[in-house]
């Protein structure tokens, strides 16, 4: 069944179109930067963008930061939201279930295919961005990163300071981050940290996927479940930036979304990364359990 789901995923034009479109945005940004040599000053704009002119090898990280706030969650919500509801809407769900495919099995297969999709998109973005960075922006032997111990990064609001090869410190917006001198990062370290960032982003997207998958078992409208999951994310983003909502902020799904940036500090700043993994694990478990409870006892009338 898992193989069948993967075949369905990979043979679907939508999958590849969304991958290409997601890769196209960082590519476009890179082209503009190459032509104009204009980047946001350190600490402003999307994370890492200020550093990519000095080092094209950092561009994958910059690209991930570009697609993370909107492109990636939208793509994931659409695929996960479509997983059960889409089959219900086309009528194929009932035929799968009487084949028979166990309901739990179907849910697990759908989840795995969503994970594969997330990895596919994230890896595609990383590799195309690496190629773009190296060819358009120029390679570098080592990257230097800004250190920012103790710097909590409010979701989407601020990027950490990143310095180029010059040992000048980057400055984060809001002044909450005390930046220290950048230490050089070897290519191996950069690769390791990029892998860590990919893992973190994948898990974050799984949180989105779990919410969308749960909604997908409730409604027969793929659009409804995808938009529902996105609405939850938008609500979370609003609360993350709201001072009055400080009490709930540590539990919001998007609160630690940008914590993967901490992988690129020297040394790696683990606190927010761990919290991010933790909170996403809770969201994944809770919403998958809810999805399973609902789907396995539901009358299939579609």
């Amino acid at each position: 069944m898992i193989k069948v789901e993967l075949v369905k995923l990979l043979r679907r034009p939508r999958t590849w179109i969304s991958v290409v479109l997601t890769c196209a945005l960082p590519f476009m940004v890179a082209v503009f930067i190459t032509v104009t040599h204009l980047v946001p000053p350190p600490g402003q704009g999307s994370a890492f963008l200020s550093a990519v002119l000095q080092d094209g090898a950092l561009y994958p990280a910059a690209a991930l930061a570009l697609v993370l706030p909107v492109f990636l969650p939208v793509a994931v919500a659409v695929v996960a939201g479509d997983s059960i509801a889409g089959e219900a809407a086309t009528g194929t769900l009932r035929y799968l279930l009487v084949r028979p495919v166990g309901r739990t099995r179907l849910l697990v297969a759908k989840l795995i295919s969503v994970v594969v999709y997330v990895l596919l998109v994230v890896l595609a973005v990383t590799f195309t961005a690496y190629a773009t960075g190296v060819f358009l922006l120029g390679p570098s032997e080592a990257a230097a990163v800004g250190q920012a111990p103790g710097g909590a990064v409010p979701g989407g609001a601020a990027a950490p300071g990143l310095a180029g090869q010059a040992p000048t410190a980057g400055q984060a917006a809001g002044g909450a981050v005390t930046s220290l001198s950048g230490a050089p990062l070897s290519l191996l370290q950069l690769t390791e940290r990029t892998a860590g960032a990919i893992a973190f982003i994948t898990v974050s997207m799984l949180g989105v996927a779990a919410i969308a998958l749960f909604l997908s078992t409730i409604t027969d409208s793929a659009l409804g479940s995808a938009l529902g999951a996105l609405a939850a994310l938008v609500a979370s983003e609003v609360l993350v930036t709201l001072n009055a909502a400080t009490v709930v902020q540590p539990y919001l799904p998007t609160r630690y979304w940008l914590a993967w940036i901490d992988f690129f500090r020297q040394p790696v700043f683990w606190r927010d990364i761990q919290r991010g993994f933790g909170i996403q694990a809770v969201y994944v478990v809770v919403f998958l359990a809810a999805a399973w409870a609902n789907f396995s006892t539901k009358d299939i009338t579609a």
């Binding site: 369905k8 086309t90 009528g91 194929t92 009932r94 035929y95 009487v98 084949r99 028979p100």
Partner: peptide
């Protein structure tokens, strides 16, 4: 169910 062939309302396919 493996011994049953079924058509339920309309047919459905990808």
């Amino acid at each position: 169910l493996p011994q049953i062939g079924a058509l339920i309302e309309e047919p459905a396919a990808y």
